[in-house]
């Protein structure tokens, strides 16, 4: 990828974070959705972003996933070859390629992240076909493997997700993203709208996959239980700003900022 805008060439991959967000700002007219948000994410790390609705966490995710252009700030990502590129200084082809291979996005509503009218197998195989896979049997085999990994019956490989339960659709969405072995996955309320037992199963799966595949992830959620289960580190957002961040257990067990204290105290134990 020659048309990327490059900054530092990292000496080793672990001296530079996988993702660095600096001074991100985004407004909608007079409404300030994100103000001066900064954080870093390291390979294999799961970062939880928590806050109530209106805190700006979804806007943050939309900026980081390039669906929205921030008004100010930088989003720097370390590519597979070690170079660092800024998301909006890249050319559109480079960015789209990134979205399709090295990144995954799991939407809250699986309908937004799936092709509902097309079979489960095709949904999972799409990323492979998009980057040149041309052997039907292999694509199908790969898809079947991933269905197994996300605990969907392989017999359903030819069924459209329209016929799946909410939890299954969500698991399919995960498979569709992970098939290209992305290094970073962005998740927006991945368990939103699911039954408690279904949620638990999904969270277990996610935790297992993240650890097995060494995925870095940003999980946006209002549910502190989800955050505790999935995230190594946590940032707390309120009215567009980060008010506290730290190791998950520390933030949840010993919150420093009054708003965090309020959040933690308000969940039913």
């Amino acid at each position: 990828m020659n048309d990327l805008s490059l900054t530092d060439v990292a000496a080793t991959p672990y001296e530079t974070p996988l993702l660095r967000v600096s001074g991100l700002c985004k407004n909608f007219g007079a409404v300030v959705a994100c103000r001066n948000v900064s954080f870093a994410l390291w390979p294999g790390e799961v970062l939880g972003v928590v806050g109530e609705s209106g805190s700006g966490k979804t806007t943050l995710l939309n900026c980081v996933s390039a669906r929205l252009q921030p008004d100010a700030g930088r989003i720097e990502f370390q590519l597979r070859d070690g170079r660092v590129a800024e998301l909006f200084e890249m050319s559109e082809p480079a960015r789209r390629m990134l979205m399709r291979t090295d990144w995954g996005i799991v939407h809250q509503n699986p309908r937004d992240g799936l092709r509902l009218g097309v079979s489960a197998g095709a949904n999972v195989g799409e990323r492979l076909m998009a980057v040149g896979a041309r052997h039907y049997g292999e694509i199908r085999g790969n898809a079947a493997d991933w269905l197994r990994k996300v605990e969907i019956e392989v017999a359903r490989i030819d069924d459209p997700p329209r016929t799946f339960s909410g939890g299954m659709q969500q698991r399919l969405q995960i498979a569709r993203n992970l098939v290209s072995r992305p290094r970073l996955v962005l998740m927006d309320e991945p368990t939103g709208g699911l039954d408690v037992s279904v949620q638990a199963r999904l969270l277990d799966l996610l935790r297992g996959l993240c650890s097995e595949l060494g995925l870095a992830a940003i999980v946006v959620t209002h549910d502190l239980g989800v955050a505790r289960l999935l995230a190594h580190r946590l940032t707390v957002m309120r009215r567009g700003e980060i008010v506290e961040s730290g190791l998950t257990d520390q933030v949840l067990d010993d919150p420093q900022h009054p708003y965090t204290q309020l959040l933690v105290a308000s969940i039913l134990q």
Binding site: E92, R115, G121, A122, M129, A130, V131, I139, I157
Partner: peptide, 22 residues
């Protein structure tokens, strides 16, 4: 037009895959 510019032809192959699957 954007898909052609980016040679983003994945969806076309998805259609072929579906045909063969079905």
């Amino acid at each position: 037009r954007r898909m052609h510019a980016l040679a983003d032809y994945g969806p076309m192959y998805v259609r072929l895959y579906e045909d063969i699957a079905q």
